[in-house]
Design a protein around this nucleic acid. Structure first.
Lengths: 227, 227
DNA sequence: GGCGGGTTGTCACCCAGGCGACAAGCCGAG
DNA sequence: CTCGGCTTGTCGCCTGGGTGACAACCCGCC
């Protein structure tokens, strides 16, 4: 539970709280452990909890009527999701599935409300988070319209690099834990096309492909290709 | 200014305030009048105001490097925009342009802050609005990936109908005030394809096309085509 | 009432990228 | 060690829809 505190303290949502508030809130946290591939909640479920990722990665997906999937985002430690249903109590509009084994902190609707009312910093923090999300989503939309698949793949990799990248001897290691299929769903393209784009990048020496990871070798070129 | 109060009172953001707060906030409102086609602010501008539409319609657009445009949304009376820059003070990420002559109420950053701190209802209202926006944007994203252009056009029209439709003798009149070009930017397609889709719908008797408007005749079929 | 710029309707052409189909690897479970 | 099921690498075919190019409008303005 020490580790829990550690990550929680750094999560933006909690940073805003005074020590007393943070302690109180932590008391009402429930810890959830998920194995890779395990579903936390599904589209359409009733949901009244918000989650903060302590370790591991979680993907948020939407399923079309015909079963095809769309990946809204991949989140890692410190990031939060499931907050939408806090503000208007509608069913969940996306499913949450663990991409790797993961540990989450779950906060109930009702536990959180008093803090929103009592500590304006908390709502400001939430508003910031949502505003940010909205900007990113709008970016993604523009990309879907204007950028070709290789460009979107490049963008996605750079974004993943920002968040999960680790500087190594030979380049920036991005262990994204996604299959190419999932990567494809993330950028809104077919697996085949994503594969081709990756191969192309590798051929040009911009990156090296590893199992559920890539090593970025030429960020500059990647960035140029992305726009 | 009476009309101003009228619409403002009904805007969700203000509904949440007590009478006293609403009066105080209204005092710091500045009124802006725009002619059709006039730009309120542009991508990249510094922005510290939030706007509520009193009358008319405003479009939010993004421009790609090559000049192509993307229409994020069209907003009408009672709706709010420009709130993102309130929470993290980055430059505007979209431009706001009047689609028709319009009157807006502008609220400054600094005028609003005290209310967020003092009246939790206000921040809850803002959070709801953002959460909603986010859901809609996510929907739009899925549609870009999964739905073909005619489907997206149908969806867009139904959405516009929801917000701007007026029941008439012969069907639901949707005076959207958009050119086909703008409609195309809204659904992320070319003007030609949108035109073809509209013509197709008209041919099938699902709608009638009028200048900057359509009359929906068979909502059921439209809805079916949309999914 | 005639002119000019912004819309709309419709072509023909072309290509990015989806889809189906397989082969080859890789990995965890028995 | 071996088998079966994911995952990856690669085809070729086919089509939705973007692009360019006009002609016909429509409407406000001189």
């Amino acid at each position: 539970m020490d580790e829990t505190n550690e990550v929680l303290r750094k999560a933006p949502l909690f940073e805003a709280l005074d020590e007393e508030g943070a302690a109180a809130l932590r008391a009402s946290v429930s810890e959830v452990r998920l194995g890779r591939g395990q579903t936390l909640f599904s589209e359409g479920d009733e949901g009244d909890r918000l989650y903060v990722i302590l370790s591991g990665k979680v993907k948020l997906t939407r399923t079309a009527v015909d079963g095809r999937e769309n990946l809204l985002s991949v989140l890692g430690p410190g990031e939060m999701f499931g907050e939408l249903s806090l503000f208007d109590p509608r069913p969940r509009t996306a499913s949450a599935v663990a991409v790797t084994d993961a540990v989450l902190a779950g906060l109930g609707h009702d536990d959180l409300r008093p803090f929103i009312a009592g500590q304006p910093q908390v709502s400001v923090e939430l508003l910031k988070a949502l505003a940010n999300r909205l900007r990113r989503t709008n970016d993604a939309m523009s990309d879907l319209v204007f950028t070709d698949v290789p460009g979107r793949v490049a963008k996605a990799l750079l974004d993943l690099a920002d968040r999960f990248g680790k500087e190594g001897e030979d380049g920036l290691h991005v262990h994204h834990d996604l299959t190419q299929e999932e990567l494809a769903q993330l950028v809104g393209a077919s697996r085949e096309t994503v594969n081709k784009a990756l191969a192309e990048f590798a051929l040009r020496g911009w990156l090296r492909i590893e199992a559920k990871a890539v090593v970025l070798l030429d960020m500059e070129r990647m960035r140029r290709r992305a726009r």
